[in-house]
Amino acid sequence: MKKLTVEVCIGTPCYLMGARELIDDMTELQNEYEDKIKFKTLHCIEERCENAPIVKIDGEIYEEMTPDKLREIILERI
């Protein structure tokens, strides 16, 4: 099965708005669903910084992400 690709932006604007917590969460999720999720970090996603933090899931961009929202979207998709 194709893995779900989750890319979290760790650029400075995103980091400041909570990307670190998203990464902590993703690391956990990836450990749990190793065969289902591919997790990467990016340095900026299409300059969407104004609405940081930004996450890309299978190519689709999500703005103003929170750990809860991210978990929900991922669990729904896998």
Partner: peptide, 14 residues
């Protein structure tokens, strides 16, 4: 400081 970095468009990650 990090807020100033963002304002100055300094992206430390890259």
């Amino acid at each position: 400081l990090m807020c100033i970095m963002v304002a100055a468009e300094m992206n430390l990650a890259s």
